[in-house]
């Protein structure tokens, strides 16, 4: 079997980062359009909004708070973008990948564990009650979503007998994983939306605590934090493609086009969910995660393991 993905020169990382930026812009614009539709604003204005907001935040003076822990604050704020960039290194784009790593699946998982620390650090750094409460909320949520997410990731590893993302894509040449492990895909999607502090899992950025962890962020700090937060959402959507949707496989179009197309579709679904599901507070989700999602994930893994053993 030839290698399903080829590792490209590291200088292509710049293209990868640009691709991430474009997808982030698409996500922001789409969210803006959905908001405009819900609230009766103008869709054209919402398309201009990402660029306008970027320009505004770049020019805004950076505010600080009394006795802020600036070092940890900056690490947390910038870290989300770094985590998103590190995540996409193992995501194949068609047949190319930046980092053909033997434990790519665990690498992705380790990068979303970084988000635990980063969101909390942003909440801590500003020395503000509301931001810190946001940080606490995120960790409470993280304890509930991370284990189910791990079981969902493991499902793909069992079925492909590898932790390498390229091998996982190759194992789907006959049947996409989403078809015979829908529960794992569902849990994975919940995990991605949750670690992106997005939509129903956005209570750490809630309106009830003045914007939560981002309450005291301003200027370029705010821009980088929110770019990174959209970045991890995009990375999560992009990683769903090699994991569950057969990677770049598809008719007529080249592999990279299929990767991009599938990523945009998954991303659009994640963005759309935001306005459809109310906030899921950590104390509500804790029981769901531990009493429903973990057993469901384990059963899914067991089923796949039985199939793999008996074939």
């Amino acid at each position: 079997m030839s290698d399903p993905v080829v590792e490209v020169d590291p200088s292509w990382a710049i293209v990868g980062a640009l691709l991430l930026a474009v997808l982030v812009m698409i996500a922001v614009a789409l969210d803006g359009m959905l908001a405009a539709r819900a609230q009766g604003g103008s869709a054209a204005a919402s398309l201009r909004w990402p660029a306008a907001e970027t320009a505004r935040l770049l020019r805004q003076r950076r505010r600080s708070t009394v006795a802020a822990d600036s070092l940890l604050w900056r690490i947390g704020g910038a870290g989300m973008l770094v985590a998103a960039l590190l995540k996409i290194t193992v995501v194949p784009f068609g047949e190319w990948t930046l980092f053909d790593f033997e434990a790519g699946l665990v690498w992705f998982n380790a990068m979303d564990a970084l988000v635990w620390a980063l969101v909390w650090l942003v909440g801590w750094g500003g020395n503000s009650v509301h931001a810190l409460v946001g940080g606490y909320r995120f960790l409470a949520l993280a304890v509930a979503y991370e284990l189910p997410l791990m079981f969902a990731l493991i499902a793909t590893a069992i079925a492909s007998e590898s932790l390498n993302v390229g091998d996982i894509v190759a194992a789907q040449s006959e049947l996409w994983f989403i078809v015979w492990m829908p529960v794992a895909f569902l849990i994975y999607s919940i995990g991605v939306v949750a670690f992106s502090v997005w939509g129903p899992f956005g209570s750490s950025l809630g309106a009830d605590i003045a914007g939560g962890v981002a309450a005291e962020l301003s200027g370029v700090d705010r821009l980088v934090f929110f770019a990174g937060r959209y970045g991890v959402l995009v990375a999560g959507a992009a990683f769903a493609v090699p994991l569950f949707l057969g990677g770049g496989s598809g008719a007529v179009l080249p592999a990279w086009a299929w990767s991009l197309l599938k990523t945009v579709v998954v991303l659009a679904a994640f963005v759309w969910v935001r306005r459809k599901v109310p906030l899921i507070r950590p104390e509500k989700f804790m029981e769901v995660g531990w009493m429903l999602l973990i057993p469901a994930g384990m059963l899914q893994d067991l089923l796949i393991a039985l199939v793999m053993v008996n074939r």
Partner: peptide, 8 residues
């Protein structure tokens, strides 16, 4: 709005 149901 507090309950996060922005559409409603």
């Amino acid at each position: 709005a507090l309950a996060g149901a922005s559409g409603l």
